Simulated scan of single mutants.
Amino acid sequence: MNQEIAAALIAAGAAVAGGVVTGWFTWGAARRQADAAWAAGQRQADAAWAAGRRQADAAWAAGERQADAQLAVARQTLSAQARAVERDVRRAAYVAFLGKADAAHRALLAHQAALGTVDGPARRREFEAAQAAVREALNVVRLEGPDDVVTAAETLESALSTTPAGYETAGRDFLAAARAALTGA
């Protein structure tokens, strides 16, 4: 064999062997690079998932706080409205009672002035009807309360048959109790 051919065959064999060795090392490096890229991508995906989860949790908590705040405002509004309605109903009951008590007091004075006259019996019936209206209005006050106002109203109803000064005092006491109940004092 010719020396040149032998050298060429050796060179060709070395090139093939070197290519296989180089390819093996290149393939190993490429695999390590792909594994590193995969791991980096996995870490990035895990971090994105964790960040998204924290963001979703924070949004959920913020939504709950907002809903709680809106619910608290709604409760306060409803409570204020309920107190206003209760106050209006009580005020109407107190006004009606006071109006009927005043009408009964005037009927009593008219009856007393008509005693021994032809109008006496008619004035007596008017006073009795007015007293019945006072008792009916007193029952409404008893339902609406509170106890201080009920006590003052019962005292005013009893004072219809006392002196005018006793009636006036009982009337002032009822007004004071009613005002205190309506203003929350």
Score class of each variant (00 low, 15 high):
113 A>Q: 12
88 D>V: 00
100 K>Y: 09
66 Q>N: 14
108 L>R: 14
73 V>D: 14
113 A>F: 10
87 R>C: 05
84 A>Q: 15
70 Q>W: 08
92 A>S: 15
98 L>V: 02
77 T>Y: 05
87 R>D: 07
75 R>D: 08
74 A>W: 09
113 A>V: 04
70 Q>I: 10
81 Q>T: 10
120 G>Q: 10
100 K>G: 04
121 P>S: 09
102 D>W: 06
94 Y>Q: 11
126 E>H: 08
110 A>G: 09
119 D>P: 04
124 R>K: 03
70 Q>R: 14
80 A>V: 03
78 L>R: 10
130 A>H: 06
97 F>W: 12
136 E>D: 14
118 V>Q: 13
99 G>S: 15
101 A>R: 05
119 D>M: 12
93 A>S: 15
87 R>T: 13
132 A>K: 10
101 A>G: 05
118 V>Y: 12
94 Y>M: 09
73 V>E: 15
77 T>E: 12
81 Q>K: 04
83 R>Q: 11
86 E>L: 10
128 E>D: 14
76 Q>M: 06
84 A>P: 04
112 Q>Y: 02
125 R>L: 11
131 Q>S: 12
110 A>K: 05
93 A>W: 13
75 R>T: 11
119 D>I: 00
88 D>S: 15
85 V>G: 02
79 S>H: 12
133 A>T: 04
111 H>D: 05
90 R>Q: 15
127 F>E: 12
87 R>L: 04
139 N>T: 07
104 A>T: 01
98 L>N: 09
96 A>H: 06
99 G>A: 15
99 G>N: 15
93 A>T: 14
109 L>G: 01
122 A>N: 06
105 H>L: 00
109 L>F: 01
87 R>H: 11
117 T>V: 01
66 Q>V: 14
99 G>F: 08
98 L>F: 12
132 A>H: 07
140 V>I: 14
116 G>H: 08
66 Q>P: 10
119 D>N: 09
94 Y>I: 02
74 A>G: 07
136 E>P: 03
143 L>S: 13
116 G>R: 11
117 T>L: 10
134 V>G: 07
87 R>E: 10
101 A>H: 02
93 A>C: 13
87 R>W: 01
79 S>K: 07
127 F>A: 09
122 A>C: 02
138 L>R: 05
111 H>G: 01
116 G>I: 01
102 D>C: 01
91 R>C: 04
100 K>E: 11
103 A>S: 13
107 A>F: 02
126 E>V: 09
104 A>V: 00
115 L>N: 09
116 G>Q: 05
115 L>T: 12
112 Q>T: 07
74 A>H: 08
81 Q>G: 11
94 Y>C: 07
104 A>N: 00
80 A>G: 14
122 A>T: 07
131 Q>R: 15
115 L>P: 02
112 Q>L: 05
81 Q>C: 00
137 A>S: 15
124 R>H: 05
99 G>P: 06
97 F>S: 11
66 Q>H: 13
108 L>F: 06
93 A>G: 13
121 P>V: 03
69 A>C: 13
134 V>E: 07
138 L>W: 11
94 Y>V: 03
81 Q>R: 13
82 A>N: 09
118 V>N: 06
81 Q>F: 00
143 L>A: 12
139 N>M: 00
